[in-house]
Design a protein around this nucleic acid. Structure first.
Lengths: 212, 212
DNA sequence: AATTCCTTGTTCAAAAAATCACATGGCTGA
DNA sequence: TCAGCCATGTGATTTTTTGAACAAGGAATT
């Protein structure tokens, strides 16, 4: 891949995800070409920002014309490393875990939950969305067999660290944590925290602020 | 509330949410007092950062001692405006919407889904988690009756804008959008987008990056 | 009451990110 | 083929955010 390996801001990655989303909707509506200016408006960002974000990874546009939508989507996906399927292990088959298993966009977006783990004896052995729920102690043996690369933690908060330990022990390469607690893992393993209440807090704050 | 009304960075709000999470876990473990230094380590941020974030809203600590955990939690919640219950309207009772309705942390965190809307005739009239699913056209009349303040969009992407229009029309004060598409609303209404695939992309990118 | 200790709140410098502004260079039409 | 057009890619500038350093000020101890 042709890219200048300067350090890439995390905010850029977040925006690239937005660009993909908007570009896919544009493509669906029949747009073949788009300028950074129009894309910028659709994403509520500055057009220079877009050009600069893309410039980290290469030159994808045509001067005087713009960007070919399909081509740009492909290029961004390549840049992010999501031009392939990532195999995931889910730990914690409660409310959140179940919802994730049922979320059919996963494959569409390049991720596949290939194994589900839970330490609850009542759940172990149950079939779920075509997958058998297994005790997390089996992670270490199953991870290499199934080529699991990303761990998804969806346990209660007090179990998250234990889940993380299992994942680390199984040589998983990255973790996304839906449990509302922080975890400690070796620093070469990237961790992302997901908690949509953050966004609700933000909304509440913005509303409150606007009031006074 | 005692606060210097400079502009408050969005990143600060995000971190405050993390502080609350960590502080509540600390409290559960019996910690009554904590220093910015220890809290910083638990949150993986800089301790000056924490003190500065808090300083936007007031002086909550005691020099030479630290912060009283329970008191700090309360203060942060007040600062964010989540020291009360926000009533929410859900539009879209599919996979995601159902998961949200079942998510019992809502009330614990200060939000309550008080009404559920969906335009699918097969769903309208169904009872769900003690709530009847109603056509979104009824939003405008129900919103003032039920005091609905925040709208939660969980429709397919191509229905998100229509849902947003209903919410705006019903004088909702803020919107959180789980659908993978952008929406346009009057600019006095704050919108937050939630898409956890953003985080999966980020993980994939970080793993890929670490490889070469 | 005075001193020591320790952590906060704040100032100031540095780093990073966003924005502006324009030169660059493909495409189109004459 | 050449001139004109127009949106990209990028260097310069501004703004924002982060981090380091320190003065201020409660609490504990003598």
């Amino acid at each position: 891949m042709n890219m200048k390996s300067e350090h890439i801001p995390k905010a850029t990655i977040g925006r690239l995800a937005v660009y993909i989303q908007v570009l896919e909707n544009l493509l669906r509506d029949g747009n073949e070409v788009i300028s950074s200016e129009r894309l910028a408006r659709a994403c509520s960002v500055n057009s220079s920002q877009i050009r600069k974000d893309l410039a980290y990874f290469g030159e994808f546009g045509v001067r005087g014309v713009g960007y070919y939508v399909q081509e740009l989507i492909t290029s961004i996906k390549q840049s992010l490393g999501i031009d392939r399927v990532w195999k995931c292990a889910l730990i914690g088959v409660g409310n959140m875990g179940t919802a994730l298993l049922r979320h059919h966009d996963f494959e569409k977006r390049g991720f596949k939950i290939c194994a589900a783990f839970d330490c609850d004896p009542d759940k172990i052995g149950l079939e779920f969305e075509g997958m058998e729920i297994v005790c997390p102690t089996h992670l270490k043996e199953q991870a290499p067999e199934l080529n699991l690369e990303i761990g998804i933690i969806a346990t209660p908060p007090d179990r998250a660290q234990r889940a993380a330990n299992h994942l680390v022990d199984a040589n998983i390469r990255g973790i996304i944590n839906f449990a509302p607690s922080r975890i400690n893992v070796p620093k070469h393993i990237p961790v992302e925290y997901v908690d949509f209440f953050d966004h609700l807090y933000s909304i509440a704050f913005q509303i409150t602020l606007g009031n006074d």
